[in-house]
Amino acid sequence: MPKIDKFEDLEIWKIAVAIAVQVYILCDSEPLKSDWGMKDQIRRAACSMSDNIAEGFEYNNNPDFIRFLNYAKGSSGEFRNKLTILISAGKIEQSTFDDLYSKSLEFSGKTKTLIAYLKEFEANKKKK
């Protein structure tokens, strides 16, 4: 894997930002627009994915980055849980649910792959 100089170059960060932007736009429409509690919670979960990538990357060491990637992956799970509640309550369209859910799964899978890569890289460093 080539060296990444800034978190903005990471594909997972770009996916997470796209999810957060889509959620912000979704929350500007009814019925979420006036559901202050859920609107706040789903926005926070969506933003937390990219926030944790950015923060962890800036610590400039793999163990901290891995920890924050795990937080980001956890936020993806929280986000999908909120989507499930919203679709079950009839608050979002099926197509919106399907799109955001699949993007979140893609984010989670690619984040898991990056975590595994970084863990292996760190383990190999210790062997030398």
Rank of each mutant, 00 (worst) to 15 (best):
Met1Glu: 09
Ile4Arg: 05
Asp5Ser: 10
Phe7Trp: 12
Glu8Thr: 15
Glu8Pro: 05
Ile12Gly: 08
Ile12Asp: 05
Trp13Glu: 11
Lys14Ala: 09
Lys14Gly: 12
Ala16Asp: 04
Ala16Gln: 04
Val17Gly: 09
Val17Arg: 15
Ala18Gln: 15
Ile19Gly: 05
Ala20Pro: 11
Val21Thr: 15
Gln22Pro: 05
Tyr24Pro: 01
Ile25Phe: 08
Ile25Leu: 14
Ile25Val: 15
Leu26Ala: 08
Leu26Thr: 09
Cys27Phe: 10
Asp28His: 08
Glu30Trp: 09
Pro31Tyr: 11
Pro31Ile: 14
Leu32His: 09
Leu32Tyr: 07
Ser34Ile: 11
Trp36Ile: 10
Asp40Ser: 15
Asp40Ala: 13
Gln41Lys: 08
Ile42Gly: 00
Ile42Ser: 00
Arg44Cys: 06
Ala46Pro: 00
Ala46Trp: 01
Ala46Gln: 02
Cys47Tyr: 05
Ser48Asp: 02
Ser48His: 00
Met49Glu: 01
Met49Arg: 02
Ser50Thr: 12
Ser50Gln: 12
Asp51Tyr: 11
Asp51Thr: 14
Asn52Gly: 01
Ile53Gln: 07
Ile53Pro: 07
Ala54Ile: 11
Ala54Glu: 13
Ala54Gln: 12
Ala54Ser: 15
Gly56Asp: 05
Asn61Arg: 11
Asn62Arg: 11
Pro63His: 05
Pro63Ala: 01
Pro63Leu: 03
Asp64Gln: 08
Asp64Tyr: 02
Asp64Leu: 04
Phe65Lys: 00
Phe65Ser: 00
Ile66Leu: 05
Ile66Met: 05
Phe68Ala: 01
Leu69His: 04
Asn70Arg: 13
Tyr71Gly: 02
Ala72Trp: 06
Lys73Asn: 10
Gly74Phe: 05
Gly74Gln: 05
Gly74Thr: 06
Gly74Trp: 00
Ser75Cys: 06
Phe79Tyr: 06
Phe79Asp: 02
Phe79Asn: 00
Phe79Glu: 01
Arg80Gly: 01
Asn81Tyr: 10
Asn81Met: 08
Ile85Thr: 10
Ile85Ser: 05
Ile85Gly: 01
Leu86Ala: 07
Leu86Asn: 03
Ile87Asp: 03
Ser88Glu: 11
Ser88Pro: 01
Lys91Leu: 15
Lys91Ala: 12
Ile92Ala: 03
Ile92Leu: 04
Gln94Asn: 14
Gln94Ile: 14
Phe97Tyr: 15
Phe97Ile: 05
Asp98Tyr: 09
Asp98Leu: 10
Asp99Met: 15
Ser102Cys: 06
Ser102Leu: 10
Lys103Leu: 09
Lys103Ser: 07
Leu105Lys: 14
Leu105Thr: 14
Leu105Asp: 15
Glu106Ile: 15
Phe107Ser: 03
Gly109Gln: 14
Lys110Ala: 06
Thr111Tyr: 07
Lys112Val: 08
Lys112Asn: 14
Thr113Ile: 13
Ile115Ala: 02
Ile115Tyr: 01
Ile115Pro: 00
Ala116Val: 10
Ala116Glu: 11
Leu118Ala: 03
Leu118His: 03
Leu118Pro: 00
Lys119Arg: 13
Lys119Asp: 09
Glu120Trp: 00
Glu120Ala: 08
Ala123Gly: 02
Lys126Arg: 12
Lys127Gly: 00
Lys128Trp: 04
